[in-house]
Design a protein around this nucleic acid. Structure first.
Lengths: 350, 350
DNA sequence: CTGTTAGCGCGTTCAC
DNA sequence: GTGAACGCGCTAACAG
């Protein structure tokens, strides 16, 4: 274990006191230019590096931020974290990752553990199935450390959030289907206790109503974000007496499942049925029949969440801001919803 | 800022000394059962939590491990990190993530930064394009903290690694193509200064030779792991006087590009040409024409890397182990290489 | 068994 | 401007 050089080492060498070295290193105004220069030079010579643990213990600020996500190996969360890391690393912060596995108890453990590490902030998406962890979130606020939700948020007094406008994304997707001539639009939903899914549902519903179409609750079925689930729901739709001719899904995976099922039933996409997913997962672009989807710009979302954190941590510590940043979703039009041979407006379509 | 209870608080309350409290909390043998019980109880009452920063400062052990990957938002790296986190979190460790962006200078910054945080170990994949950062890796070893490479490794004295057997994976993929009746197998390679790609190349080559086929260097072309790159290389292959009828690609993305290009040339996959990728990216399974690929079991790889770290950190600190764990790759046979209507042996195929 | 003391590395009073 | 002294929270060494 090679010993690191401390401020004492360089103090001894220069025959001054450690306090002076500390001041020189921290740009303290009351110090002579000469000694500062001297200290900085010898610090470099001796490969001095500040011990961040000691500083953290002393100051209470660790320059670490905690990030809690249900799981890390999905394109969406991975990309958000990427955005967070890229914004915070240049500012001297490090990212500590925890996975909640959509489990409230693990989430509680994660957050307590992060608090104990004296993280300077926590950025997170709440678990999928969660009843009431408000006390937990409030305990973070009580410690006066910024808490920021991204994507899967919840209304908590004092907690900022960065999301996309799910309502708008869903509305535009549904509108696009209607514009393409589909007359009877169904919706594959997901657990609507989560705001994001409820908002997508509401956006869909509003678009249907605004276009003078009949809103039918039977055309809305919840499903997990899985291919098989999409198949299951599509099967139900197809076996109806009066089946839909368009599907807006709150998930790309269930959208894909729906497409597979539709084809297996001998129908064509997009000729007979139009399908749109949500999230713009990489595979939606790669498919032979590319899938129209709503992009959530996750990297951007991560960057913004990080920026909100930086604002909160740098500004007045006492005023809880509770900022709400809402990103614009972007409909990426691809083959699965393009029945009409209209010119493609969106240059991001293939 | 609500003050946390420290061992002093509980010492004062019990009218004993902080050292005793510390001993009680740390299962020190020389302490009476009575006081231990008393301490533990009041600790719980007062919601005491050990300050890990103070402990780290004192002990030099932070219970943090650093993970450095080129980028986090890919299925492979995300899954490895997932495996690492799931293994280390129950042991009380936290994961600090850094992205090197395949840049040596950022990598250097990452590692120095992690050392400064006094991480107890560093788990990483080396950057794609890298000349010689051996000094950097050795500086980690000099501090006597475990360094473990996963996937993208390099031979460094004292550094353990967890990889899959790329040679074997490539060999089996190529063999499978030959077994399916393809006679002239080409290879889309990648930067072979990286061991993984060189080993895939060697495995391919050996399989070709072992089967008595002609090995032709012209049938090996390097490409980045991108769809367009796969198209480019496939185009070159198809325009040859004597084009190949099978392609083993070191990447799923270039394999997909190749398939798209082949189809655009009016040929069929797998009837006219067989294609196999590498990594078992999620999309390979989802495609309408599902793609045969080599699975690298990334989550397992992460778990093993974490276990190797735990061994090294728990065992004798002075002996550098340099363990080499090699995982078995698994060929996932799907449609893109299945010309013969043979029964599918692999139950993981669709 | 338990109390006392000291130190991990740093920043920050308070004097001078 | 600079030095001396202290404390962040915890643990290890030495007493007793």
């Amino acid at each position: 274990m090679k010993k690191k050089t401390t401020i004492y080492d360089i103090a001894k060498k220069l025959d001054i006191t450690a306090a002076t070295v500390s001041r020189a290193l921290n740009d303290n105004p009351k110090i002579s230019v000469a000694t500062r220069k001297l200290v900085l030079e010898t610090a470099r010579e001796m490969n001095y590096e500040q011990n961040r643990l000691a500083k953290a213990l002393k100051s209470g600020k660790s320059y670490n931020v905690g990030v809690v996500v249900p799981r890390i190996n999905t394109n969406f969360f991975g990309s958000v974290i990427r955005g967070i890391e890229e914004t915070l690393y240049p500012e001297g912060y490090h990212i500590i990752i925890c996975q909640s596995h959509d489990d409230e108890r693990i989430e509680t453990s994660n957050i307590n553990s992060l608090l104990n590490l004296q993280v300077d902030g926590i950025l997170m998406s709440i678990p999928n199935i969660q009843r009431d962890n408000d006390d937990l979130y409030n305990s973070v606020l009580k410690e006066n450390i910024p808490l920021i939700f991204f994507d899967r948020r919840k209304d908590i007094n004092g907690v900022s959030s960065v999301t996309i406008d799910d309502f708008k994304g869903a509305y535009e997707a549904t509108q696009h289907l209607i514009d393409q001539g589909y007359k009877r639009i169904a919706h594959i939903s997901n657990d609507r206790r989560l705001q994001i899914f409820n908002n997508r549902y509401l956006g869909y519903k509003q678009a249907v109503i605004d276009n003078g179409l009949e809103f039918n609750e039977n055309l809305v079925i919840e499903a997990f974000s899985k291919v098989e689930e999409g198949r299951r729901v599509a099967k139900t739709f197809l076996e109806m007496d009066n089946p839909p001719d368009g599907i807006f899904s709150a998930s790309d995976f269930s959208a894909l499942g729906a497409i597979k099922e539709i084809k297996d039933h001998g129908l064509r996409v997009p000729e007979d049925m139009g399908v749109i997913g949500f999230s713009n997962e990489p595979f939606t672009e790669l498919m032979e029949l590319s899938i129209t989807s709503v992009d959530q710009s996750p990297i951007e979302m991560g960057k913004l969440a990080a920026e909100v954190f930086l604002e909160e941590v740098n500004n007045s510590k006492n005023i809880r801001s509770q900022k709400k940043v809402v990103l614009d979703p972007q409909l990426i039009i691809r083959q699965s919803s393009l029945r009409e041979a209209i010119p493609i407006k969106n240059d991001q379509a293939i």
